[in-house]
Design a binder for these strands. Sequence first.
RNA 1: GCCGCUGUAGCCCAACUGGCAGGAGGCGCCGGUCUCAGAAGCCGGACAGUGUGAGUUCGAAUCUCACCGGCGGCACCA
Length: 854
Amino acid sequence: MPKTRDITVPPPEQRELRYDPQQIEEKWHARWEADPALYAADPPTSKRKKFYVLEMLPYPSGALHMGHVRNYSIGDALARHMWMRGHNVLHPMGWDAFGLPAENAAIKNQFPPKEWTLGNIVHMKSQMKRLGFAYDWSREVTTCLPEYYRWNQWFFLKLYEKDLAYRKKSRVNWCPECATVLANEQVVAGCCWRHEETQVEQRELEQWFVRTTKYAEELLADIEKLKDWPEKVRTMQRNWIGRSDGTLIDFAIDGDGKITVFTTRIDTIFGATSIQLAPEHPVVADFIKVDPTLKDKVDDLISQREKSKGSDDIGAHDVDKHGVFTGRYVFNPFNQEKIPVWVANYIVMGYGTGAIMSVPAHDDRDFEFAQKYGIEIRVVILPRRSAEPPESGQKEQPVLPYTDTESLVINSGDYNGLSNQEAIEKMTAFAEEHGFGKQTVTFRLKDWGISRQRYWGTPIPIIYCEKCGAVPLPENQLPVVLPDNIDITLQGGSPLGRVPEFVNVKCPKCDGAARRETDTMDTFVDSSWYFYRYTNPQLTDRALDTKTVEYWFPIDQYIGGVEHAILHLIYSRFWTKFMRDIGIVKNDEPVLRLFTQGMVIKDGAKMSKNKGNVVSPDEMVARFGADSTRLYSLFAAPPDRDLDWQENGLEGVHRFLSRVYRFVMRNASVAKVSSSKTLSSDGKSPSKARAIQRKLHQTIKRVTDDFQGRWHFNTCVAAIMELVNELYAADDEITAGKFPPDVLADAQRKLVLLLAPFAPYLATELWEELGEKDSLLRHPWPEYDRALAKEDEITYAIQVNGKLRSHVAVPADSPEDFVRERALADEKVKASLDGKQVVKTIFVPGKLVNVVIR
RNA sequence: GCCGCUGUAGCCCAACUGGCAGGAGGCGCCGGUCUCAGAAGCCGGACAGUGUGAGUUCGAAUCUCACCGGCGGCACCA
């Protein structure tokens, strides 16, 4: 900004009235920088009560965006508030520093991923500091450094030891053009994101998996414990884990072998008129051996499905169902009926057994399929409970497909007349007795594939020896360090595979020649436990210290975007349970309270480079200051909702801070000479002073309550704005010297305290201007005084039959009867009674009286 | 298709468990005051009846049902 404006020096009283955030913020930024221990947490021996506030760590993409600013402004306000409430606050920050963009940048600009990443971190850290976020930087965690990722490797070895990490073949997205594997997010409309014309292939590759399914039951059950998580997230996790109770049933193949199906509706088995197999089902391959003509038809089904996956914005649901009859039959184990076996494109291999019994009368999909191919549709469930036939004597037919469970089983041999629930129990028991069925639970949740054929990730500590097979690296050989300065291209699989010094090793077991694993770990591994590392980031001999973790955990408040509601938060929960089971942590869950903030929207769309609607935090800080930018991100919408970015709104917030600044600066001298003792409500203060006291304490209550409950910081800020408006309304009295200085001084101090969590720079500056010497960060949060907040007079709304007719002002502590009398005596009320009978009056304390007439 | 969230002045948003929409706050607009004029500041004003339709209730933005629009999650899960 040009300095020329200040050539004519204004008189002091004018000069001090201009709110200059740059000057204030730079001054305090420098002071805070000089005191690195300012935001440090006390050790676990602290007498204070601990409070762990955590915001989701960012990916160091290059610069902070408004979503980050919003996320961290919420967390910082809470952290500062809790400091002021006397807690021992842990408020750390770190970097989710592995991942694809670094590699892409490397390919594009020939710049090493490590330097790119560390450079971004330096910049983003300085942005955070400039925004004034109160982080304990001595605990900073950077996941791409060996000091951190060696513990990923250590955990991997533990997982392997416990049989929670294993290798299996699995299908992956493969771009023939790039000659490498793609992450799901890199597949756009069935094609490679870099080669839009190139169809992505599915290839079978050996991949490392983590057995998350082993904890499926507990992950699901413990959602009940997460009482302070948003219901939305809990529901999403429940659906993601997707438990369903059902039965496995063997159908003997006419010829040789059997087909096992999974069903939740064994009660409909007498209505099964075909068996449907997924095209990839192993039995299909057997059938093809016998009848080679089947192969082309099945391949057709697969390719059709791949195609339909491509246009996935239409939704898989609309895809036509196709199928082919295999020419083979199985026997229904309940009645030995011969049932045809088909292969259908709507059966997925990844769920259940990849085979179903098709009951067209009682399943939407089976119904559609049967109609198309003319398969028999046999009703076995009626939509009523009574075994008595309907009155007309005719058999009523349900509207098909009938999938409700209000039911009466028919056409089912010994099971006729039962409800579907009874039938499920009896049939399952029968199947188990006769050894062809088994009650079972199936989860939608799959094991977590963690292999990535990428360079910029944690190397998996496994060595392949021709003699000994896959050998885990001994712990004392950790970390497996990622080699620097390697040539990254997208040609030919993992870049690590082309580094002989890395690949060629000796087998830890037999000392023979061996190869190192060249896959790296999914970055969700890093973020699954980083918040434990914050408790003791300098430990060199262990991932964490159990005692220290026990002190800090669980996290009291975790704050981040909803987009992580499923993956990150399920993996984190899984990791915690695994860590508990190997005895290094005591808690079952990592996070006590979760808060998911809304997105930042501009012009009706999420801010993104593609849309060109990105607002740069740097620019906003330069123009309006960090305080205004932060305050606006809290004020513009409730934190859990999407925020519509409007620069006018930011200007308004800036104007508000200017008002605060001007008011306090003008009247600071009063505070300096006046005592800070809380005033008594002796009723002798002039009316404006009393009004200000009242407003002040009402505001304290609202802000304090919101921090403990709803977190509607937008209304907190609005409440503080009201307080400031009230102060300005007393301006005449203040200037005239008629306003009690102690009230004014008290109000100013508490105003600054209330503002401290939201606009720390300005608050700190004004705190100093008010002559305070202690640290605002540790100064006790203002106490709410009920007596001072109380209204002297209450205006009751008077309704007649629910319609507002009048108002009556009464002293605040008036008894109910008195208010009723006054209401009935009111002229306007009398006028609207219109000679009718008063039936009753409804009294709502402090609010209204409703006179009901007839 | 299923599940969830959401709909209040021109705009962003308030209204806690049903209880005054003389909207809390902010933006924008109009006016007054300052000024030679303007900007800034300060002061004041106008504008909606709560997406639509029914129901419950003394009383509904709030509860219930149906429908319409926006957002998000899951999606042939057997």
